[in-house]
């Protein structure tokens, strides 16, 4: 076992605005993993979450092959070896 943390990667379209390389981030939920990413990249938070802490309307998160169900508290569980993909939705463009 090489990696034990969820791996978080981002749509290349975000790189128009800020640097956001793929990172391994500890956490048992999507939110916990993202909070760990934000800790090292604070500006990223406002691109993915609104000021109320919800996932922005036109941002989509997948855990492996399935869209994350909880867009408000981001409580979808993640574990070892999971991939969290942050995409922009096709809406909103």
């Amino acid at each position: 076992m090489v990696t034990s943390m969820p791996r978080v990667s981002f749509t290349p379209n975000l790189r128009r605005h800020l640097d956001c390389p793929t990172v391994d981030a500890p956490g048992a939920t999507v939110r916990a993993a993202l909070e760990n990413v934000f800790a090292g990249n604070p500006r990223l938070r406002g691109y993915l979450l609104d000021e109320h802490g919800c996932l922005r309307r036109h941002v989509t998160i997948f855990v492996n092959d399935a869209p994350a169900a909880d867009r408000v508290t981001l409580a979808d569980p993640v574990g070892e070896g999971d991939d969290i993909f942050v995409f922009q939705a096709l809406s909103g463009g």
Partner: peptide, 29 residues
């Protein structure tokens, strides 16, 4: 007013040659 990533505000000190992202208003819930 980014379609996906929210409202951003930028400031330029050099007439628009370069821009820096600054703060944005936050509405209370």
């Amino acid at each position: 007013r980014l379609g996906h990533f929210g409202v951003k505000l930028h400031r330029s000190e050099d007439g628009g040659a370069s821009w820096t992202e600054i703060g944005v208003p936050a509405l209370p819930k």
